[in-house]
Design a protein around this nucleic acid. Structure first.
Lengths: 337, 337
DNA sequence: TTGTAGGCGTTATCAT
DNA sequence: ATGATAACGCCTACAA
């Protein structure tokens, strides 16, 4: 099994210089028609394929985008990566994958490996606990642009695409108010998360719009674990005002909350209603799907983030011209399959 | 912004030869202790990192595995890829991703691109309609080993990991028989799929074990679309014998079938029971989860396939020593979350 | 113990 | 219109 044919081999067989062959293969304008034909014919015959690793090396470019995200098996992220992959492929880029498993140390290691692999750019959704960003800042030195998406760092001077939960939350709470609910509980996430704060703001704004007063004790911060959700539910159900509707942080939380409510003998959609945020494409499969769900557009986020990164790489965008795209979340009622 | 430091630069500063520096960095035994220290100290100071693209080029190896699969957003595949990624990373390999979207042409194109990117090996789960495998055979010429998983080609002399549906099907049907069901319908997949044939065999064997006769008219082949499933249900529900249990091809099919049954006024788990195959990690969220579900171990399939590929790459396995691993599916009752 | 030199495949620069 | 040559960064015989 002979080595794959190279430009040099073609050159020798045709008594040409390698440079000529290279140019002929690239349809360089000032190469004689017949030599060009000869070269291309022989190339086809030998099934010549340029050695990309050589080109990567020589051009200092790999046409590869690194993607770092917490968990591929979460539906949200696998949808996002679909958007990334599709967009990247349209531009002849490949996609190098890494999961942080929500572990900052692993995230750092992956950044390191990807840097060494000389990815042209990076798309990142942060691990849950990442609060320092030195391992990303470091990439500036290597001229590797980074675009964050969804789980973005709390800092300026970065590119990112994220979904604003506020708009969807306003719509969700408004829907509940419109249906006559007055005491609406919210099972929110950790306070330091931007996404939690957006939910809080959305909740407050929806109340203000109806000239109702916002009751902070109805907005419970939990840690998204099943146990945390149950505690939050306990707190809400024992509130001095009777809670008739609940906005849950996401579909997982929603399910845990529903389960708790059932255990307490409540009847879903009669004693208590739920609205949630769509992390799952499968809410139509749930036993008690939420009344409505706030869509976060994972595919589109991935798509948009990739477009920004590619623009950066194509120098169509200056690195300092920080793109901060915010997609508005939107309430979707009775999400179908 | 200066270029990243190179071995040559370190050599110049220390008045050494590049080869010495290279060896010092690799802890080559016969390099003087003090020069080694010097070199490593300076390397650290300059934050030297070897240029992997140069190494890839020089070593004709990229430490990258290509993965081609139909749809990342299907839970089954995203679980599989998790297994792949984790295993690859443990061995310091990276993972290059490509989705065929169940389109053979796209699959071919991705194979081409990955070959050009000089991936060291390929993990593939076939697009639904792929029936010719020339684009994979071609890789032998380039010495790029391929391990197939789950959706494997119907040919000899390949490496693969797959899940045998037969065992799980036997268990599923046996469970239903044990619960007293005698007329069991099966909504099977396209006849040409290996996985469909395995289900048929499993069904038949389970019946034989109880000395019951297998009725082929209860085994309906559908196309997995919602409409196809509804037609299959219609056929089964109008069977001359009264069908009291159904084995559905997968959880999606199961849900569509449940929905149809509900529309026909049947009560789930009283008039009719369902057993299914777990494509979703979320059956616990379903309105009417199947009684039991056949687990297909996607993570383990990915893991095992990767291990085989890595063994091949490490020459611990001869390319002609075709590994054909079959993981037995297994019935899981009342799958929890 | 260290240095020299060549090569991996391609493109780019400068000649001719 | 084509050729010669250097360069990319690293490794590894082979020499000294």
């Amino acid at each position: 099994m002979p080595n794959p044919p190279t430009i040099k081999e073609i050159a020798q067989r045709l008594n040409l210089a390698t440079s000529t062959v290279s140019r002929a293969l690239h349809n360089h304008p000032r190469i004689g028609l017949k030599t060009r034909m000869q070269v291309q014919a022989l190339a086809k015959e030998l099934q010549y394929e340029p050695n990309q690793t050589a080109i990567f090396f020589q051009q200092k470019k790999t046409f590869t985008l690194g993607i770092i995200l917490p968990e591929l098996s979460e539906a949200f992220f696998s949808a996002a990566i679909s958007g990334i992959e599709d967009t990247a492929n349209q531009h002849n880029y490949m996609v190098l994958l890494g999961q942080s498993h929500d572990d900052t140390e692993r995230e750092k290691k992956i950044v390191e490996i990807m840097k060494n692999h000389r990815v042209d750019g990076l798309l990142v959704s942060l691990a849950k606990n990442t609060v320092q960003y030195a391992h990303f800042d470091m990439l500036r030195k290597y001229n590797i642009p980074v675009v964050f998406f969804d789980r973005i760092p709390d800092m300026k001077d970065i590119h990112y695409v994220a979904c604003n939960m506020e708009s969807g939350t306003v719509q969700a709470v408004s829907l509940l108010l419109q249906q006559g609910h007055r005491v609406i509980g919210m099972i929110n996430g950790p306070e330091k998360l931007i996404a939690s704060r957006q939910r809080t703001t959305g909740y407050r704004k929806a109340m203000q719009q109806q000239r109702l007063k916002y009751d902070a004790t109805l907005n419970v911060h939990a840690d998204l674990s099943r146990e945390g959700t149950r505690q939050a539910m306990q707190q809400l159900l024992s509130h001095k005002r009777k809670v008739t509707a609940i906005v849950a942080f996401n579909d997982y939380v929603s399910q845990d909350a529903v389960q708790y409510a059932l255990e307490q003998g409540l009847q879903i959609n009669r004693d208590i209603c739920f609205v949630s945020y769509a992390n799952l494409p499968l809410s139509s499969y749930m036993a008690f799907p939420p009344l409505a769900s706030v869509e976060q557009y994972p595919y589109q986020q991935g798509q948009k983030a990739t477009e920004i990164l590619l623009a950066l790489l194509a120098d169509k965008l200056s690195p300092e011209d920080y793109q901060q795209v915010i997609i508005d979340s939107r309430l979707v009622i009775a999400p179908g399959r």
